[in-house]
């Protein structure tokens, strides 16, 4: 087992919290009194989102030691001695973003991980407060496994945690309808409000797209990129929207659904209900995004 030397780096999310508050208030004012008067804020919805964010932070503090202990264990068994120099920092920034892409993609493609991630998509509104609607069960359900390969490679756990936090801070500002499009060069490389609106939309053409954290290039490389079409305005939420602002219900409703399904399922269907795509059912009575997209293609062909 190799040595572990602590590395002190700030928590980007904690540092950014005052800016989150300031920007949410600014966007609220803009939506209420701005020229466009886009009524995209709903106080109860924002209340629920902020409670989910607060809960995420509290549970995050409580479970940080679990994440840290496992990541440090992986780091102590690292394959390479790469240190913590400037180039390592830069490489870690990109690889952390690549890890996020796969974590995020699997969080949409497997119901087990979707049960935690659905919280972030459960609002039918799209504004800066939606960015704060975060999971309470992400760490406990093992979402951090997607970052463990970085620690095995030799990236310091504190560095991974730092860039993971930085990525969350970056992703805050893209949850808005107040910005239409960024300059072309920016849209080509980085994740933007336009790209992320597509990701949060339930329009069949937009399902399962734009999983990027900071760099949109990953979606372009792995074939999941979809451009926002001005004639196809995004409708936000999930395919079967929830009807509650209660944070506890928001946090656990999909877990409850999984529990209900697997306790009444035949043994050979349990894996499908648990790890299959959201909407999977043995008799096809429910709809996965793949089915919804196919129906959309079929409808287009017929017309």
């Amino acid at each position: 087992m190799l040595d572990y030397v602590p590395l002190n780096l700030p928590s980007p999310v904690v540092w950014a919290t005052p800016f989150f508050g300031f920007l949410v208030i600014t966007e609220m004012l803009y939506s209420k009194f701005g020229k466009s008067k886009t009524a995209n804020y709903e106080a109860k919805d924002s209340f629920a989102s902020l409670m989910m964010g607060v809960g995420n932070q509290i549970i995050g503090f409580a479970t940080a030691s679990l994440f840290f202990a496992i990541t440090v264990f992986a780091y102590k068994h690292r394959m390479f001695e790469i240190g913590t120099g400037p180039i390592v920092f830069i490489v870690c920034f990109f690889l952390e973003d690549l890890s996020f892409y796969w974590f995020h993609r699997i969080s949409h493609e497997s119901r087990y991980f979707w049960a935690s991630h659905i919280i972030h998509h459960s609002s039918q509104h799209y504004n800066l407060s939606t960015a704060l609607r975060q999971t309470w069960t992400g760490t406990l359900s093992g979402g951090f496994i997607f970052w463990l390969p970085l620690a095995f490679l030799g990236f310091h756990p504190a560095m991974i945690g730092f860039f993971s936090g930085l990525s969350l801070v970056y992703q805050f500002w893209i949850h808005t309808e107040a910005i239409d499009k960024m300059p072309k060069w920016f849209e080509a490389i980085l994740n933007t409000p336009s790209h992320h609106r597509v990701h949060h939309a339930v329009n069949p053409d937009y399902l399962d797209a734009n999983y990027a954290g900071v760099f949109i290039i990953w979606d372009k490389i792995f074939g999941t990129y979809v451009d926002e079409n001005e004639n196809n305005k995004p409708k936000y939420g999930v395919v079967t929207n929830i009807a509650t602002f209660n944070p506890l219900r928001i946090a656990f409703h999909e877990w409850f659904g999984i529990f209900k399904d697997i306790t009444t399922a035949k043994p050979n269907h349990i894996i499908g209900y648990l790890f299959g795509p959201p909407g999977w059912s043995p008799d096809g009575s429910r709809k996965t995004s793949k089915i919804i997209k196919q129906e959309r293609i079929d409808n287009k062909t017929q017309t």
Binding site: T17, P18, F20, G21, V24, I25, M28, L29, S31, K32, Y41, E42, A43, S46, F47, L50, M51, G53, V54, S129, L132
Partner: peptide
């Protein structure tokens, strides 16, 4: 911070 934001939202009638 969250309480301040929520309170503000209700205050301006959102």
């Amino acid at each position: 911070a969250a309480s301040a934001v929520i309170g503000f939202g209700f205050l301006i009638g959102l």
